[in-house]
Nucleic acid binder design. Structure first.
Length: 589
RNA sequence: GGCCUCGUAGCAUAAUUGAAUAAUGCAUCGCACUUCUAAUGCGACGAGUGCAGGUUUGAAUCCUGCCGGGGCUACCA
């Protein structure tokens, strides 16, 4: 709803009842006549009349006060207002006057917003869970940019610790000196096989020790391979050149693999943080915090914070031997980031199993007195389940990201060829199209769900191209573009004097008009799902319009020109909305 | 045990953060292509929102209890 409507309605409410708050106008449900609806229940105590009488009273006053409305009807406590046709005309004038309707100009003065996402470990390839994380992080970044912020995208790579030492140990023993190239494997997958190989070896050794009569605890702590891995970790920390060399070689393999997947998904980071460089951060901040009384040291030397007054527990921030825990490092890294960049906001895209961690982290930073602590946000997304339950690596049900993308592209190919839609395209064009469609299906399937909710990933539904899906929206876009291509050279001038709006056109205009509010809401609620819903609404509204209105064969030249303009606005809104989701909009499909 | 979270048609998701007869898609059944891409549109069928109370003019949304799923509860997060 436009400003004008809201101000007109509030003026009348002030006159009538002395009501000062801003009224809530909502779109009228389709089953009633009207475009905007005012809920009148809140005014009953002031009007001291029945809901219908009150609605009629307000409606009559509005008609008298403003030309914005032509009619109204009162149904129970709902006042349905019919907008004057010229209101839709000005909506359309507004939305097509802007070259990028829906995107707010970037405020260069404002510090950037940082978004951390993906943040993988370097011991195994990316899987479906990372995919949700990555898609959310990327889309959120785009949405924040569209809402007028500069954005800094970062990931923190967990490149050190026992996990990578396990892979290193296994490669030393079973790798035969082979590299991803010589093995013909993607680097992250290659390293991942050694992580798995280590686990097999470890379990065998534990079993052996137990068979020799040792208790389970002992066996787990004394398996030779595990002792060697721990020794390797110690050497890593002592910067042993040999260990460090192998470590960086294997991590490089992994990064090459990750980068291939990121590139495929269209993901770019502005800055990578590596734990090997940040894991010592935070200790000084803890010391400082002890001085200021935020933390306290126990007799054994460990350092804690007492959050019981805040409804949480006591939390360790430094071990008794002086080494860090994750919290220590996260405190230091957050502080570091505000030094590294001119930012005033930091969002972590991390699964909801870490809700507690982030509550504590943010609270600690607040207590340490950082003014930006209020601008930290944990976009806590739900786990991705498969139709038969949770992904379990031990049961081999983990969905690999690369495999998934392959399957999506293959499905797009077979479906498109079955429909015979790709005649005349070169093979590279086809490959590109199938990638765009397959990824579009996957991305939309994941992003249309509220990030906070746990979701079920059904492989069969995810490759669906009909209904509430990415390809449906892409298809709608392609159809509009096809019409626009054919409209080239036709007369393009028209005026409102020659055009009267039908209901479908009004719906379409009203839908597209919401774009800026949608972006604002998506940014405010950190929810790409809001944009996903909008894109679907636009596609549906256009298809409904298209079904009953001929565009290129409309009755008059003016009407053709108008409808072409409306189609153009539709296409660009669709393209931009999809772009905010990280989805490409093909010209034809 | 404590804390956090979720429970909406057969399935998957919505519901502008408290408003109208709970929306959309899939599935099922039916209708519409000599017309700008039918990967489309239109219609039918299908839930009263886990259960029981409460607050409110009004509750899927808020409160209480119970049932059920998930997460966290380590000097790992």
């Amino acid at each position: 709803m436009t400003e004008a409507l809201v101000t007109a309605v509030s003026a009348v409410l002030r006159d009538l009842y002395g009501w000062e708050a801003s009224p809530e106008l909502q779109p009228t449900r389709k089953e009633f006549e009207g475009d905007a609806t005012l809920v009148v229940f809140p005014f009953l105590k002031l009007s001291r009349k029945s809901p219908v009488e009150t609605a009629n009273e307000i409606g009559a006053a509005l008609l008298k006060a403003t030309p914005l409305f032509t009619r109204f009807n009162a149904v129970q406590g709902f006042l349905n207002l019919v907008l004057a046709s010229d209101q839709f005309e000005s909506l359309f004038d507004a939305l097509r006057s802007s070259a990028d309707w829906g995107c707010w100009p970037v405020d260069a003065e404002l510090p950037a917003a940082m978004v951390e996402f993906s943040s993988p470990n370097t011991n195994k390839p990316l899987h479906l869970g990372h995919v949700r994380n990555i898609l959310l992080g990327h889309s959120l970044s785009r949405i924040l940019e569209a809402s007028g912020r500069k954005v800094v995208k970062v990931q923190i790579i967990n490149d050190r610790g026992v996990h990578i030492c396990k892979s290193m140990w296994a490669w030393q023993h079973f790798g035969d000196g082979m590299t991803p190239e010589s093995a013909g494997q993607k680097g992250d997958h290659w390293v991942g096989t050694f992580y798995v190989r280590f686990d097999q070896e470890y379990r065998a050794q534990v079993r052996e020790l137990m068979d020799a009569g040792h208790p389970e605890d002992y066996a787990k702590n004394h398996a030779p391979c595990m002792l060697e891995v721990q020794e390797m970790l110690r050497k890593w920390e002592d910067r042993d050149p040999e260990v460090r060399a192998l470590w960086s070689t294997m991590n490089e393999w992994v990064y090459a693999g990750f980068n291939t997947t990121y590139k495929r998904l269209g993901i770019v980071f502005d800055r990578n943080y590596y734990e090997s460089e940040t894991y010592l951060l935070g200790k000084q901040d803890i010391e400082a915090g002890i001085q200021s009384g935020v933390f306290y040291r126990r007799d054994d030397g460990s350092v804690w914070i007492d959050l019981r007054e805040d409804g949480l527990d006591e939390k360790l921030v430094l071990r008794s031997d002086g080494t860090s825990v994750y919290m220590t490092q996260d405190i230091g890294t957050a502080i570091q980031r505000f030094k590294d960049f001119s930012i005033n906001r930091l969002t972590y895209v991390v699964g909801n199993e870490q809700d507690y961690h982030f509550r504590v982290l943010f609270l600690i930073l607040k207590k340490l007195g950082y003014p930006w602590a209020d601008e930290l946000y944990h976009l806590s997304y739900g786990m991705v389940d498969l139709p038969n339950g949770r992904m379990k690596s031990r049961e081999g049900t983990v969905v690999d990201a690369d495999d998934l993308l392959d399957e999506m592209e293959a499905s797009a190919r077979s479906l498109s060829e079955e429909l015979g839609k790709t005649e005349g395209l070169s093979e590279p064009e086809k490959a590109k199209l199938y990638q765009v469609l397959g990824h579009g299906a996957l991305k939309y399937y994941i992003l249309k769900v509220d990030p906070r909710k746990r979701m079920v990933f059904n492989p069969e539904e995810s490759i669906d191209f009909n209904g509430h899906t990415g390809p449906f929206i892409q298809y709608s876009h392609a159809r509009v573009r096809s019409i626009l291509r054919k409209s080239e050279g036709l007369p393009s001038s028209w005026s409102w004097a020659d055009v009267r709006l039908d209901e479908r056109s009004k719906d379409l205009i009203q839908t597209i008009y919401r774009f800026p509010e949608v972006v604002e809401q998506a940014a405010r609620t950190y929810s790409p799902a809001v944009v996903a819903q909008f894109a679907y609404d636009v596609a549906k509204a256009f298809n409904a319009f298209y079904q009953v209105n001929s565009i290129l064969n409309a009755e008059s030249e003016a009407l053709i020109a108008f409808r072409v303009d409306l189609s153009r606005a539709t296409a660009s809104s669709l393209r931009r909305a999809l772009d905010l989701l990280g989805i490409e909009a093909p010209e034809r499909m």
